[in-house]
């Protein structure tokens, strides 16, 4: 396998791995470094990767394990979604109303039970299939569908409550 073949094969994974690894590691710089290191490890084990029957699970598991090992080594406290993280608004200009809405989503995401949040993030942000989520979480696909359904509804209901409150207090949602 040449480097170009390796890159074209692994790049689609990288698009999914980046958000997932960033959630674990916290910073963009650390995520970039971790991805570089992970790709190097996979490159060094490219023969095993070619022979692997389930490369998706192999790659995602390797990425998660690497990130958790990294966190353990650094002995840092995990980044929580409820923390004050600067909100980026699409288009580059700062819209306080949009930023407020994103902050609500972030807070609600942070308040979801861990298994709800994990499945929701994997599906919505990382773009993983049900089978890939099943591989990573060890749950069956029907159960994942249930978790996803519940987490989506919970999120919507919580957001609705905020919007109703804002409408009730005269603020435009």
């Amino acid at each position: 396998m040449t480097t170009e073949e390796f890159k074209s094969r692994l790049w689609p994974y990288t698009r999914k791995l980046y958000p997932m690894m960033k959630r674990i590691l916290g910073s963009e710089e650390e995520t970039r470094d971790a991805l570089q290191e992970l790709m190097l490890r996979l490159w060094n084990r490219k023969e095993a990767l070619e022979e692997c029957l389930n490369p998706d699970a192999y790659i995602f598991t390797a990425a998660r394990n690497y990130c958790f090992d990294q966190k353990k080594r650094e002995r840092r406290s995990p980044v929580t979604l409820t923390g004050e993280v600067p909100v980026q608004v699409a288009g580059g200009s700062f819209d306080p109303d949009a930023a407020e809405k994103l902050k609500h989503v972030r807070l609600i995401m942070g308040s979801l039970p861990e298994n709800y949040r994990e499945v929701l993030e994997m599906r919505e942000i990382d773009g993983l299939s049900f089978e890939e989520i099943a591989e990573l979480t060890g749950n069956e696909v029907p159960y994942i569908r249930v978790l996803l359904s519940r987490s989506r509804m919970k999120l919507r209901n919580e957001l609705e409550k905020i919007y109703s409150y804002e409408r009730g207090t005269g603020q435009t949602a």
């Binding site: 480097t3 390796f6 890159k7 692994l10 790049w11 990288t14 698009r15 980046y18 958000p19 963009e28 970039r32 991805l35 570089q36 290191e37 790709m39 190097l40 490159w43 909100v87 980026q88 608004v89 699409a90 949009a98 809405k101 994103l102 609500h104 989503v105 972030r106 995401m109 993030e121 919505e124 942000i125 990382d126 773009g127 999120l155 919507r156 957001l159």
Partner: peptide
Amino acid sequence: EKAFFTWVAGESALPEGLESAVFEKV
């Protein structure tokens, strides 16, 4: 839904030049 999907778009956005940076060590 709009608020959630806007947030998702921001969370899943990849930084500029990630592809070349990621394969630097390779």
